[in-house]
Each structure stands twice: as structure tokens, then as C-alpha cells.
């Protein structure tokens, strides 16, 4: 009988290990500073950060597109500089920009990608990849005839053509409509189920919230935080209780004006923020106090902080 209990996350070996990575461009701009990061095999890792934080530089350095100034990167145990052939053979990259050979056909460009990675011709695999990405019917079309969404999928097909174990998706759903975005999420989950480790950068917090197992936040070239998504939300997430009043208030009664409670502009809502992790949230005393002051409410609801709010908070703290 196999052990049904999965190993704890820290026991899973790192498929990508970044040690003390730094990158300073010739201009003197320091894009990465002493970055340490472990990506675990089989996970979906979301790298978040504002524009210019170093997300793309980090990915590009791992994939061999940018030369590091210092530090070391291992991909599946292989040094990406010294053992570049073994390391790169394991990595697929989908860059942010839709860069394709406009006059080439869909099928040929995917076959070209497979050849570049030194893999023997395998028409069955290319057919599978194109079918999985709903591009099989377009295999004879020239790339310039494809829509933006199809081009985006084609970039993924090219990256998957050589059967990588690690897939980097740099802003995979930038400029993609909602429906296609959801299709892509499904596809990424399918890849992970097939054993591919996914590292994605995104501006869409909901994307990370929806898909990632772990989240890394990068700002000013430094990794600010790495944690499991749920733990991150638990740790930093705040809850909000909104009470819809029976009658408007002009101001908060002095006894209730503790800072945790706020009155909406129209005076019809009381907003109470609390730490969901605390044993005593303060909700029960608040409700008793409201009753004591004769403040009635007709409805209430609670809301958890989104990852976006957490992210903004982290970045602000990092700048402070």
C-alpha cells in the first residue's frame, strides 16, 4: 500500500534553486540583489511584483537570456551556466511579448522549437500539444493569420514542444480576455497534474490567488517574501465586517470611536476591520455596544482581504 500522506513541502526537493543571485546592468542599474529562492518540484509558483521589480530579469537569468553578475542557479540540479545544455533542456519559457515568426506556419514553428532543444522529431507529441491548446485545426495557418489569444497559446505550444519539466510563464494572460484566461488556468493546472513545475509572473492578483500553491513577492530586485498562498493570506489577511444600518448616523458615538470602526460617507454603514487569526476578534463586544447605544442594523456581511491588498501592503512596507 502506498503511503497516502504526501510529504511535507519542505521535504520536496527544489527543482529550481537560486542562490545569492545578483544582476547589475552596464548602466549601473541593479535589477536583482542577492536573490535566494527555491522552487519545489510539481508546484505552481507565482512571482508577484510591481513593474520594474525584477520579475522578468529573474526569469530571463534562469533561462539563460540574461547573464548574472553573481550567484548561482541550479535547474533540476544542473548549473544553468556550467551545465547549460542539461539545465536548459529541462526548461520551457513563454515570454511576455508575443514574439513569433509571422510568415511561418503553426506546425512548422512548433517543430522548429522542438528541434532547437535537440529532441528527435515526434509528430504525435506535437499533435497532442496542438490539440491540447486547441490549435490543431490551425496547424497549416501562417502565424500572422492567428488572433492574439491563439498566438499566446502558440507560444505555450512552442515552450511545451520539447517536453520540459519546468515551465516559465511570464505574464501568460496579459491582454487576454476573461474566458481565455480561465481556459489557460485550466491548461496550467493540467500541466501541473502531468508533473510540470510552473513558475508564473503576473500582474493579475486573482490569477495568483486562483492558481498558485506558493507566492513570492519581489520588489526592487529583492525577494520580499515567499510563502504558501493560504498561509500568506492567513498571516496578512484582514477581515472586514460591514453593518448596514437601519437609520443613518451623522457621527460615531464617542465610546465606539476606537479606530477599528469607521462610518461610511453616507452614514448608512459601519465598517469594522479585524484580524481573522486572533482568538478574540472583538465582534461580540462591538455588537453589544451597538445595542447599548440603540444602533440597529438590518444586514451584515464579512469580506477577506484579497491577495492584491496584501501585495500592496507588502510593497508599501518594503518601501517604508
Amino acid at each position: 500500500m502506498p503511503d497516502p500522506t504526501p510529504p511535507p513541502r519542505h521535504a520536496v526537493p527544489a527543482i529550481i534553486r537560486v542562490e545569492g543571485l545578483s544582476k547589475t546592468y552596464d548602466s549601473g542599474f541593479s535589477a536583482l540583489q542577492d536573490v535566494h529562492l527555491d522552487i519545489e518540484e510539481g508546484e505552481i509558483f507565482a512571482l508577484l511584483g510591481p513593474n520594474g521589480a525584477g520579475k522578468t530579469t529573474l526569469i530571463s537569468t534562469i533561462c539563460g537570456l540574461v547573464r548574472p553578475t553573481g550567484g548561482r542557479i541550479l535547474a533540476d540540479g544542473y548549473d544553468v551556466q556550467r551545465d547549460f545544455r542539461a539545465a536548459r533542456a529541462r526548461i520551457g519559457l513563454v515570454p511576455q511579448e508575443l514574439t513569433t515568426d509571422a510568415f511561418e506556419t503553426v506546425y512548422n514553428t512548433v517543430r522548429f522549437s522542438r528541434g532547437l532543444f535537440g529532441k528527435a522529431r515526434n509528430d504525435a507529441h506535437i499533435e497532442k500539444v496542438l490539440r491540447d491548446l486547441s490549435l490543431w485545426d490551425k496547424r497549416r495557418s501562417r502565424i500572422l493569420e492567428l488572433s492574439g489569444g491563439m498566438k499566446r497559446r502558440l507560444m505555450i505550444a512552442k515552450a511545451l514542444s520539447h517536453e520540459p519539466r519546468i515551465l516559465f510563464l511570464d505574464e501568460p494572460t496579459a491582454g487576454v480576455d476573461v474566458e481565455l484566461r480561465r481556459d489557460m488556468w485550466e491548461m496550467v493546472r493540467g500541466l501541473r497534474a502531468g508533473g510540470v513545475t510552473i513558475i508564473l509572473t503576473t500582474h493579475y492578483i486573482e490569477e495568483a490567488e486562483e492558481m498558485a500553491d506558493r507566492i513570492g513577492v519581489i520588489n526592487d530586485g529583492r525577494i520580499v517574501l515567499v510563502d504558501e498562498k493560504r498561509a500568506l493570506m492567513r498571516k496578512l489577511g484582514q477581515k472586514e465586517l460591514r453593518l448596514h444600518l437601519q437609520a443613518p448616523l451623522t457621527a460615531l458615538p464617542e465610546a465606539l470611536d476606537s479606530g477599528a470602526l469607521a462610518l461610511s460617507e453616507d452614514g448608512m454603514e459601519l465598517i469594522y476591520r479585524f484580524d481573522a487569526q486572533q482568538e478574540h476578534t472583538g465582534i461580540a463586544p462591538l455588537l453589544r455596544q451597538l445595542d447599548a447605544h440603540g444602533i440597529d442594523f438590518k444586514d451584515l456581511h464579512t469580506r477577506e482581504s484579497s491577495l492584491e491588498e496584501i501585495f500592496v501592503q507588502l510593497v508599501r512596507e518594503g518601501r517604508a
Partner: peptide, 13 residues
């Protein structure tokens, strides 16, 4: 066009 990324990130000397 930017497609050079593929060549530079492939296991090619």
C-alpha cells in the same frame, strides 16, 4: 522581432 529568445534559451552552443 524578439524570437531570438528561443535560440538563446535553448541548449545550443
Amino acid at each position: 522581432s524578439g524570437t531570438i529568445y528561443e535560440v538563446l534559451s535553448a541548449p545550443i552552443s
